[in-house]
Design a protein around this nucleic acid. Structure first.
Lengths: 135, 135
DNA sequence: GGTGAAGATTACCTTGAGGTAAGTGCATGC
DNA sequence: GCATGCACTTACCTCAAGGTAATCTTCACC
């Protein structure tokens, strides 16, 4: 297990390597961070963590997402191998989405981050109030 | 320690709580995710993990960032309590940025994510090639 | 008196993520 | 025959993140 400094070095190094290699060779870290940073990917992954769901079922559980973004985010997650899509030949055809093993494995480190966020939010909030109080 | 399902439940629940409470009550997770997802915050945090640095020193180590974004990202990180800013009364005045204990504590869960990303990129890449091969 | 470094700030512009709203094809229920 | 549900697709629009480039102030050096 790496410590903080080594981790930082690996990250910065990889990043710079990708930057000098041009946009054709994307940084693995940036790649994952883009998914994590976008508005819906991780919410869908976490929603699917409870088990496989169908399109409209997902839409009901995450009501704020538009159909367009639900389709698009699901496609992206599928392309990257985080979720699998299975069409059942019923009438009307139904489609089921479920996490792949890769998608499930993301939940572990992402979960650590969630825990950190929940633990630390008080401090962040206090820091903000403090900062804003000094003009 | 929570397992995947519980983690998911906490995340989705918090998210929904924040959504129904309106934009006035932001989700702690989204809050942290926004920093992690933006283009420069985590790169600066990781660069500062190696030790305190001055403004132009940071600019030299992260050459792709514009002065504007360096200033702005540093301000945001400072406001949230991730980094501290110390002005030395030399001539010309020099300014030093360093991680706070809160900022240092972020490196742990974030580092797990970096390791996951590096470990998993081959699979993601393979999944993409596979997906793209099927039109 | 001109140049350069440090640490910014400002005005302006581009790009793309995401939202809105409408439409599609097919089937069942009333 | 009309409405409704499912799983999308398409066209259009908005807004904010981020980039570019110029400018500022203070001091030291030559």
């Amino acid at each position: 297990m790496l410590d903080g400094q080594d981790m930082a070095a690996v990250y910065v190094e990889r990043w710079n390597a990708a930057a000098t290699a041009g946009p054709a060779a994307p940084c693995p870290v940036r790649n994952v961070l883009d998914k994590i940073g976008d508005k819906w990917s991780m919410l869908l992954v976490m929603t699917l963590a409870a088990g496989p769901k169908r399109f409209n079922e997902l839409h009901r559980e995450v009501p704020d997402i538009s159909q367009k973004m639900l389709t698009q985010t699901l496609r992206d997650l599928q392309r990257d191998g985080y979720v699998g899509r299975q069409v059942f030949d019923t009438k009307p055809p139904s489609v089921e989405y479920r996490l792949t093993p890769l998608g499930q494995s993301l939940i572990v480190p992402f979960g650590q981050l969630i825990e950190w966020a929940n633990r630390s939010f008080d401090k962040i909030d206090a820091a903000r109030a403090d900062y804003d109080a000094r003009d």
